[in-house]
Simulated scan of single mutants.
Amino acid sequence: MTVRATPRALATATAALLTVGGLAACSTGDGGGKDPDKVDVVAAFYPLQFLAERIGGDRVAVSNLTKPGAEPHDLELNPRQVGQVVDAELIVYLTGFQPAVDEAVEQNGGDRAFDVAGVAPLLDAAAGGHEHEGEAGHEDEAGHEEEGGGKDPHLWLDPTRLATVGDKLAERLGRADPDHAADYTARAGALRTELTTLDTAYAEGLRTCQRREIVTSHTAFGYLAEHYKLEQIGISGLTPESEPSPQRLAEVAKEAREHQAGTIFFETLVSPKVAETIAREVGAKTAVLDPIEGPPAEGDYLSAMRANLQTLRTALDCS
């Protein structure tokens, strides 16, 4: 993917990078991390932190560049965070999702960077839902413009894809810490078993639903929709805080009526106002469908995905 960072994010990253020389002078200079007995891993946002902690176990020290409650699409790095990237033994990120992270990794990551977007091809942004007139060629949250709306980064909402990323992450950790490579492989296998169980629960739980259309505040659920044969109707595009046009709101309201949607979904890290507007217009309820871009208020990725399944089953009238 060709990435064009937004001016704000690029300026922030550039300013931060100018301080790296001073930071590096105070660091170990060899990527050795703070704890010599653990692999120092920097994760760009929550699902990657979850993977690193589960697969790394007590052999890793994981830090997350995106703070709890922050919207990861809008992440800007301060000098301390750039210093974390400089010192990390392994940097786990997803290119095209967070331009400031991409910039820091390009400048400082070298062979310590693990790009999960390279594990398997990303879906087009329109996958799992409608492609509406006027959407092709728009800029996505990574600030790059591609025909058809770009690539969808939210691969972790398909647990089978996340399991594959976990297997590859175990390999990378094994290269960083060869003496414990078998432990990483074993933990990745155990996590794959849990993710396979989750996948089975979704497939069975969504097999017999009266409706298969989900109206979402932004199009984060393409992987989930594609994998479980649902249809996503996004109010806005990949950028969660983008303002949909009045024409787009009217289109979504029309589709929601046509599909007799009883629930309009909003998410945890952005305002529910637009979803509430559509819901009032069509006489529907609202409910949270978590894209799990940040850490859940309770539990972890697995419990958040199970909660999403129950929300979907209720909204879609699944027997």
Rank of each mutant, 00 (worst) to 15 (best):
I235V: 13
I235M: 03
S236T: 15
S236G: 15
S236K: 14
G237M: 08
G237V: 07
G237E: 08
L238T: 14
L238G: 11
T239L: 14
T239N: 14
P240M: 12
E241L: 08
S242K: 13
E243S: 07
E243Q: 12
S245T: 15
S245M: 09
P246C: 04
P246K: 06
Q247I: 01
R248L: 08
R248P: 04
V252T: 15
V252D: 01
V252Q: 05
A253R: 04
A253S: 14
A253C: 08
K254F: 05
K254M: 09
E255T: 11
E255N: 11
E255F: 13
E255H: 11
A256F: 07
R257P: 00
R257M: 07
E258M: 04
E258Y: 04
E258C: 06
Q260S: 15
A261D: 10
G262M: 02
G262K: 00
T263R: 07
I264R: 02
F265H: 06
F265Y: 09
F266I: 07
E267F: 03
L269R: 03
L269T: 06
V270H: 06
P272C: 14
K273S: 15
A275W: 02
A275F: 05
E276M: 05
E276K: 08
I278N: 01
I278W: 02
I278M: 06
A279H: 05
A279Y: 00
A279G: 09
R280D: 14
E281M: 02
V282P: 08
V282F: 07
V282I: 12
G283M: 05
G283W: 02
G283F: 02
A284M: 02
K285D: 14
T286N: 00
T286S: 12
A287I: 06
A287Q: 03
A287D: 09
V288T: 12
D290L: 01
D290G: 10
P291W: 00
I292F: 02
G294R: 06
P295G: 01
P295C: 00
P296T: 11
P296V: 01
D300W: 01
Y301I: 15
Y301E: 09
Y301K: 08
Y301Q: 07
L302Q: 05
S303H: 01
S303F: 04
A304C: 13
A304H: 07
A304V: 10
M305P: 02
R306P: 00
R306K: 13
N308A: 09
N308T: 10
N308I: 13
L309I: 03
L309S: 03
L309N: 09
L309H: 02
T311A: 11
L312F: 06
R313V: 10
